[in-house]
Structure formats: structure tokens, C-alpha cells
Nucleic acid binder design. Structure first.
Lengths: 369, 369
DNA sequence: CTGAAAGCGCTTACAG
DNA sequence: CTGAAAGCGCTTACAG
């Protein structure tokens, strides 16, 4: 028998033999008080007799009563749920994305702290690949009022998701900057600074030709990555060779192709900087196949990795680290700013935070041979 | 301004300047028909004038109307959402669990196909570590009626989650067997067969001392793993040495400790079988630190891995593979069996499926030196 | 084929 | 401090 299946005009006679009270009505009957008082007691409203409140709380605990989400949401117009958009490029399904996984955990932990739930809204890239962010699940969730606010990662230079949220006046926080969405709260990782540091490091090792492997140029982060790369080259008075900047799909196979492309160049690079953590898998595999030893025959610096995988490789991968759990927690906190007005009524400035990335030197890069 | 914030007794006058209709009422007014007809048209009920239905559908599409989830859920007593429990052991937050990530994607894809949503219910282990599965989020979700059914992975020999669902008459599907939960639908991976094959393989290479690294013995899968291991040894007339079976925490650090423990044994093993994919990380790191080359100085077979990481290692890891996306899809399908009665009214037998695991031979194991 | 009405479970002004 | 009542947005028998 289906839960919640009741005839339209049927009295709540409890046609099942389930002991837990099915709603506030039964709890009220049990205690001989009105449902309004139950509600006030459970929500900590001030005007409730302490003794009554204690009785209600005890009974709710004993009988396992918690307000049903649908009734609560319908009445209050709020879901106490935050939606996190997550798109999975085709061919990346089996890649255990440590970054997003940690992010989920951080976001969820902080939301839980504040009595909110997290819903992950899975989407596939639209036909344009990474160029156009998928809009389906976002629209759906807004129209169906499934969540109170969104967290939107992997921002594009122009991003229809942010624009749509802004137009619909739905609160959202971006992980990454964008030209879209107006004056919205965002947190971003300092890719410019990170890639600047990586490039300087490799130049310092004597590398003159440094390959840069990017994923879709639609991603806003690419702007900053290229800026950091160019800045380092300019400061070192090293000429920029556009051919050394290549793009590939955000999957391991993309890394294989990008590696081949870079190694086929006349001005063959002696070092690679790889941003995406799925792409680095392909790069490592391909270099091993070709018998090129990382850290000796070729230097590799591999993107943002807050997980044990880099150490697990041989040689361990030099990469960028950050505390992804902390990032997730902060993201959740910022997402809630738009919802919980009770904190302080003072106008809060729109959050715009750049998180630094820390270079973690390991064995995959070094002096030119 | 908060969405859905309306005064209690206020008419729906649209105090915001949002163009999308906020509910069925506005759409009805727009079209000059009753809300009942809108609902029937949108839900494909038979008794609607085709012309009317077309007008409704067109207007809904044009104005971006979709029934609000809370109203729908409250009325029908169904959320069209499936909850997937996911527990993250402390210390495993940054480990990108490729298996679960793929599982999410598979489950979500199939649910989407059938008009259902997926909610991932994150939980932390209870104080007992993996011994006792966490019950908090499950209870909460049931009491608040957040989902229609559950998918419950990482089953324990006795599992309070399954027992609770059974007692509350909430549909659930287990990924893994258990003694709890009565005659429930389950899908399991054939760990017994897999470990049997792995052990036979290593015995065939001449290994006489094979270490087996497990995580918590509370996990049901351990029963089958040990059974497969013992069966292979018995068939080979190789004596069982209990000391070779060690347990560790389901984190990379656990793998380091287990490796040290096994290598410290008097009857030191020349081969390892490692089940958990987070543990294998630690094993590989520790062996590399000790200068032991996998596939030469020591053989390693590493659990279930449906991701590119094993190839990414040097040497590539011999392990077990399966199509995790397909598993997720099937799990979703089975979870829906209990809910969608419209398929066929014939009594369906309770699903009980054992999925085979395929040994993928790579370079991390081989003949004893 | 369509409309009017009931009611799912909750919270919150409003009386008392 | 408490109760009675309204109404959030929807679906579905029930009349017509």
C-alpha cells in the first residue's frame, strides 16, 4: 500500500496500523490540545506555557513526530532546501570528482548546521558542450519551487543560469565569477594567482616552453588562468607562443589528445600546466605510455586537487590545494545570507571573495634536463 | 525579498512584478477556465477537450508554469523523490569516491527518465564508526515525508536502517544483502565470486601468503569476501592463516596501517587483496615509500574500481570492474517498482540480484619472484 | 467535458 | 496562554 494514500474526503481514521502519528492532528488529539499550540511549541514561539511546551516536545520525540515537509512548505512558502547545480560532461561519469564530492560534503555540513537541506541538481551539458551551461534542472526547480536558493558552480563568461535566476529574483551564489547575473554574491578560487605562481615556478626551473591545457574557453576561470600565465611570461620577458595554449574536453581522453598535440609542436614544451583534474589523468597516462618520466623528462603541474590522489601517483603530482570542505561551508553560509534575515537587519554587502590557492610542490616537476 | 512571502489572508494580487504565474490560479484566470481543468489537462487525464488541453499546455509552456512541488506533494501524499543514503566516514571527505559518484549519476538518470527526483541524504557514521549505520537522516526523512522510497547502500550484517524502514512500511531497496529488513528487494555485487577469482589468480601465480585487507566486519560484504577467499584457499589446499586477514578504517590512512601490519607478519604475504578503493590509495603510497614495486616485489589486486584511476597508476592496478552507471539505473528501477503500480498489476517478485564483477588484469600483480 | 468544492498538513494572525 | 479558523497550491470525486 502506498504511503499517504488516503481517500479524498475520508476522515483521518488511521486505516493503517502504523503507530507513529501521521500528522499534527493526531498528536493534538493524543495530548488533548489544539494543533495551533503544538505548532507554536515545536517552533519555539514565545507565547506557550513552558509545561505545555515540554509535554508537546516529549510527545513528539516519543512518537517520532516531525512536521511534514509538504505542509510546512506550502504554508510558509519556503523549503529550507538549497539547490546545488552539478553538470556532468559526457565521458566524465566514472571520474570520481573529488573536488565536487568534498564541496557537497562541506555545503551539506553547514546547511545541516542551520537546519537546511541540500539538493544536488544533476544536469548534462546542453548540445553545445561546456559552451552553454545546462538550464533545464534550474528552470524546473524554480518553477516547481523546489528550493529556496541556488549554488551555481563552473560559471561561464556569460552564463544563462545566473541571468535566469536574476530575472526570476531567485537568490543564488556563484562559485566563480561571471559577466551575467548582475551584482550577485560569488566566491571564486584565485586561478590567476595560482597559474601565475605555477608559471613562475616552471620558468624558474629553466623551462622556456610551457604548455597550458585548458578546458572550454566558455568557463570564466579560463580568463584568469590565461591572465596569470601571460603575466608570468611577461614579467620573465619570455615570448608568448599561442600554440602552447590548448583546449580539450574535460575528460581523461581530452588530456591524452592535448598531450599529443603539445608534444607534436615544433616548439615542443618541456613543461605542462593542467587545470582540470579529470584531464590530468589522461595526461599522466599518455606521458607514461610515451615513456616520458614526469619530473625528469617533462614537468607537470596539475590543477586544483584537494585529495590524496596526487600523492598516490608516481611521481607524486605537484598541484594546487585548498580546503574544499571549508569552501563548501562558506558557500552554504553565503547562500543562506539571502534567506535568513534574522541575523542582523543591517544591510549586508554582497559577498565577493577570492580564495587563494596554495602550491603544493611534489615530484612531478623540476629543472629542465 | 523572500519568495513566497505572502500575508496570511491576502488575496493573490501579485505584489511582485514577476511575470511567471505563481500558481494554477493565475493560469486559470489567464485562460478563463477553472483550475480543475488546468490540472486535468496538465496531468493527461482523459476527460479533457483536446482543444482545451492544447491551450493549457501552450500557456503553461509560454508562461513557465509547473505545479508547485509542495502543493502537489501535500495533495497526493507523494513526493516523486527517491532518497539515497550516503555516509561519509571521517577522514574520507576528500577522497573522490568514484563508485558513489557514478552510482548517483546512474540512479539519477533513470529516475529522471521516470519523472522522479533523487535526493542524496548525507550522513556521518555514528559513534560506533562503521559498526552501526547512521540512522538520523533516514528517520528524519521518513518523519518529514521527504521521499517516497529509499536506496540504502553499504548494508551491514544487521542493519537498523533496513529494520526501521520495514517497521515504518517505507519502501526501500538495498545495495547489498543483510539479515535485517525482512524480505526486501536488493541488488548486490558478487564479492564472493570476485575475491574467489582474485585469490585463485594469486595462488596460480605461486603466492602462498595472501593478505586480505577489509574494512569494518559489520559490513555484510565482508562475509562474502571472506567466504570467497577461504573457498579458493581450500580448493588449492592452502592453509588458512587468520593473521593474513586484517581490518582497517575505510580511509587511505587505514591502508597504510594495514600494509605495515601485514608486512610485519612473520609469514609475510607476497600479495595483497584490497577491497576498499580509499584504502588502496594508502596501500599504494605505503608500498612505494617502502620501495616495494607492485607487480614485481609484491602483488596487489585492488577491489572494485569503475574509473580511470587504476590505469593512472604505475603500474596500472589489477582490480574488479563493473558498469556502475548501469547498476545505478537498475537500482532506481527497482526502487520505483514499489511505487508505480500502473505498470502491471501482476504481483511482482521481490528483486534479488547478484551482479558479477569482472577481473581486469593490469600490471600490479604477477608471479612470485 | 467542465466547474465548484473539499481537503491534504501545516502556521499564524486574531479572539478570548 | 490557548483555540478556532483561514488559507498556502494542488488534485480529484462529484455534479451538471
Amino acid at each position: 500500500m502506498k504511503r499517504g494514500e488516503k481517500q479524498n474526503t475520508q476522515a483521518a481514521t488511521g486505516d493503517q496500523s502504523i503507530r507513529a502519528p501521521h500528522g499534527i492532528r493526531e498528536l493534538a488529539a493524543e495530548l488533548g490540545i489544539s494543533i495551533g499550540t503544538i505548532s507554536r511549541a515545536m517552533n519555539g514561539r514565545p507565547n506557550v506555557n513552558p509545561a505545555t511546551k515540554a509535554r508537546v516536545l516529549e510527545a513528539a520525540e516519543r512518537l517520532g513526530y516531525r512536521p511534514q515537509q509538504s505542509g510546512l512548505s506550502l504554508r510558509t512558502g519556503t523549503t529550507r532546501t538549497i539547490g546545488l547545480l552539478w553538470e556532468i560532461p559526457f565521458g566524465r561519469e566514472n571520474y570520481g570528482d573529488a573536488f565536487f564530492l568534498s564541496l557537497f560534503i562541506g555545503v551539506q555540513a553547514q546547511l545541516f548546521e542551520r537546519g537546511y537541506d541540500l539538493t544536488i541538481l544533476f544536469d548534462r551539458p546542453s548540445s553545445g558542450g561546456l559552451a552553454e551551461p545546462p538550464l533545464g534542472r534550474l528552470k524546473d526547480a524554480i518553477q516547481r519551487r523546489q528550493v529556496d536558493a541556488f549554488i551555481i558552480p563552473w560559471t561561464r563568461v556569460t552564463d544563462a543560469r545566473l541571468a535566469y535566476c536574476a530575472k526570476q529574483a531567485v537568490p543564488f551564489t556563484a562559485l566563480g565569477r561571471s559577466r551575467s547575473g548582475g551584482n550577485h554574491p560569488w566566491i571564486d578560487l584565485d586561478f590567476e594567482g595560482a597559474i601565475y605562481k605555477a608559471t613562475r615556478r616552471l620558468l624558474g626551473f629553466g623551462h622556456r616552453h610551457i604548455g597550458l591545457i585548458l578546458v572550454s574557453s566558455a568557463l570564466m576561470q579560463n580568463q584568469f588562468i590565461i591572465a596569470g600565465y601571460k603575466k608570468a611570461l611577461a614579467e620573465d620577458s619570455t615570448a608568448l607562443d599561442d600554440k602552447l595554449i590548448v583546449q580539450c574536453e574535460a575528460i581523461p581522453q581530452g588530456g591524452i589528445q592535448a598531450t599529443d598535440k603539445l608534444l607534436g609542436l615544433r616548439a615542443r614544451p618541456s613543461a605542462f600546466i593542467v587545470i582540470d583534474s579529470a584531464v590530468i589523468v589522461g595526461v599522466y597516462v599518455r606521458l607514461a605510455e610515451l615513456g616520458l618520466r614526469c619530473g625528469q623528462d617533462i614537468s607537470v603541474i596539475g590543477g586544483v586537487q584537494d585529495n590524496p590522489i596526487p600523492e598516490f601517483l608516481s611521481p607524486p603530482l605537484t598541484c594546487f590545494g585548498l580546503d574544499t570542505i571549508a569552501l563548501g561551508k562558506r558557500l552554504a553560509e553565503v547562500a543562506l545570507f539571502a534567506l535568513d534575515k534574522d541575523e542582523t537587519e543591517a544591510e549586508r554587502p554582497v559577498v565577493a571573495e577570492l580564495w587563494p590557492l596554495k602550491l603544493i610542490a611534489r615530484g612531478s616537476d623540476g629543472s629542465i634536463q
